[in-house]
């Protein structure tokens, strides 16, 4: 128990600290690296509360894909981060208001006042009976199988749309014609053994 508590405080403290450094750092590459550190610590927190599937997803999706994408953007594109930072003080009041509203909502939810639900929501299966992955799989591929399929169709439409709206047939491009390549017979090529030091022309004569 005590080990868990210590682990929680360590991971939580590092997560908060590195999150602050993400916004506070001058060098954007460092910011992205601190973001990755934050993700790892949050993943560890997920493991602590028994959500191992979410933890793995966080590492695979966010660290493996999103953070690397960020890193690419930061390093490949010429973005002036000093310029982006200007006006920070000017927008601070607006940001503070949004932050206060969010904090108020969190407190509102945590104290649980004012939310009278009319219908009972579906019970969550007990954690010692079903593993995370199994429970999520049950929801995704059994109960919400239909939504999963339709979401796939939506993605298909998105892909078709991107191709329809941006793909242009380029004229005069030399393409590989696999059929011709495979059907080529021996008469169209000449294979010669080349002796060391003589070169191709020396061998044929």
């Amino acid at each position: 128990m005590i080990v868990e508590t210590i682990a929680f405080y360590v991971f939580a403290a590092v997560a908060v600290l590195s999150a602050l450094l993400v916004v506070g750092n001058r060098n954007p590459v460092y910011s992205v690296l601190f973001l990755i550190l934050t993700f790892f610590n949050v993943a560890a927190l997920f493991v602590l509360i028994g959500a191992e599937f979410l933890a793995m997803m966080l590492v695979v999706v966010y660290v493996g894909a999103v953070a690397v994408l960020f890193l690419f953007v930061v390093m490949m594109l010429d973005i002036n981060f000093v310029e982006l930072r200007q006006g920070f003080v000017r927008y601070l009041p607006v940001g503070a208001v949004v932050g206060v509203i969010l904090a108020a909502e969190l407190i509102f939810v945590m104290t649980g006042t004012g939310l009278g639900t009319a219908a009972p929501s579906a019970p969550t299966p007990a954690i010692d009976q079903v593993t995370n992955t199994e429970a999520l799989g049950n929801i995704m591929y059994t109960q919400y199988f239909y939504l999963f399929q339709v979401a796939g169709l939506v993605l298909l439409v998105a892909m078709m749309g991107a191709i329809v709206l941006t793909h242009r047939e380029r004229i005069g491009v030399r393409r590989q014609r696999i059929g011709d390549q495979v059907l080529r017979d021996r008469s169209s090529v000449e294979l010669t053994k080349v002796k060391t030091g003589q070169g191709a022309s020396g061998g044929v004569k």
């Binding site: 919400y144 339709v150 939506v154 749309g161 329809v164």
Partner: peptide, 23 residues
Amino acid sequence: LISLYVGLELQSLALYVVAAIRR
């Protein structure tokens, strides 16, 4: 409500693309 939304999005997304088909 969720199947309402995914159906609506499937329809709308296809419509956005066909509106801009003469790109």
